[in-house]
């Protein structure tokens, strides 16, 4: 780990002033579950690390007229246990509770979950975010068991965010603050597929801090289903978050977002639209699952993930609608 200056600002004003205009100068430290490893592996070599855990206003889950405001330094444990989140936004609570390590839940933060870097082993071994060698992707010709089945490149890593799919399904927004001011963007716009090595997989700019997440107050049924082989700490192989607004006994509208299948959380728009006007049954859930994976472009070793994604959608829908399979 390269030596760095450590800053511990008490206010957002101080914090944003410590950030720089380009990547590589400063990194924001919250839970540290990813950043410390990135620094140990020299994937991040910031000259300054800005701890934001001392900034009071970044904590807390607060009900507002518009919905819920979830501070960036709220831990995954706090999120998973929060009564309002559990009652109103089970997709979010499921996703946070699904992380099998209590230590990670205690340390990891909501902001960190969204800003963490991909777990792609080519990236982690220093071959770059796009893992290109001599103009060819190492991923497509290599070990892509845990890689993307959607997106079509040039990036093939999968977004590691646990909360991203749920937030997109719930039509949440994220607030980003720099010394120049704040902007609020839909969660779906926060995640981007990088086209080259110099861009990142999130819309956050180097001088910005993700300060909070805003979840709308909406009467939705929601759930997240993660396909995990291990009960102990591990990444999901695929996941789906769904949010359903009912119109009487049938679906009014549904949003279905897949996780761990693309460089960003992957919204299955057509599958969601297909569900409108239907009851949620085992059959319709299964059909929605099939629709959700249409157009999947699996790589040499990850066709199995198509089945997993399909199953995740089906099971998330049944969980959201509380239908027993």
């Amino acid at each position: 780990m390269q030596a760095f200056e450590y800053s511990n600002p008490a206010s957002l004003k101080e914090a944003t002033a410590l950030l720089a205009a380009s990547w590589g100068e400063a990194d924001v430290l919250a839970g540290g579950t990813d950043l410390i490893s990135l620094m140990k592996d020299s994937l991040h070599t910031p000259k300054r690390v800005v701890n934001i855990k001392s900034i009071h206003e970044l904590g807390g889950i607060v009900r507002t007229a518009a919905g819920l405001r979830i501070g960036a330094t709220v831990t995954m444990d706090e999120l998973a246990r929060n009564a309002e989140v559990r009652a109103g936004y089970p997709a979010l609570a499921d996703a946070a509770a699904g992380i099998p390590s209590p230590q990670i839940r205690h340390m990891g933060t909501v902001g960190g979950d969204l800003c963490q870097r991909p777990r792609c082993w080519y990236y982690r071994q220093g071959f770059g975010l796009l893992a290109m060698k001599e103009g060819k992707s190492l991923v497509t010709g290599g070990e892509n068991q845990y890689h993307a089945i959607f997106g079509g490149g040039p990036a093939y890593f999968v977004s590691a965010s646990s909360l991203g799919p749920a937030l997109i399904a719930l039509e949440a927004k994220v607030r980003l603050l720099s010394a120049k001011g704040a902007r609020v963007i839909p969660a779906i716009e926060f995640f981007v597929t990088p086209q080259d090595e110099s861009t990142r997989e999130i819309a956050l700019r180097p001088d910005e801090i993700l300060t909070e997440i805003l979840v709308l107050a909406a009467a939705t049924h929601s759930a997240t289903y993660e396909v995990r082989q291990k009960e102990a700490l591990d990444w999901p192989l695929a996941a789906a978050s769904v949010a359903i607004k009912m119109k009487g006994p049938v679906v009014g509208s549904a949003r279905i977002v897949l996780g761990h299948v693309a460089p960003t959380p992957w919204e299955a728009t057509a599958a969601g639209e297909w569900l409108a006007g239907k009851n949620i049954t085992v059959e319709t859930a299964e059909a929605a699952g099939k629709a959700a994976v249409e157009g999947a472009q699996p790589l040499s070793h990850n066709t199995y993930k198509v089945t997993l994604a399909k199953t995740a959608v089906k099971r998330a829908l049944l969980a959201a609608a509380k239908v027993r399979a």
Partner: peptide, 10 residues
């Protein structure tokens, strides 16, 4: 997991 192209243990 060994990577054929780079020879790295992934």
């Amino acid at each position: 997991f060994m990577d054929a192209a780079t020879g790295a243990m992934l």
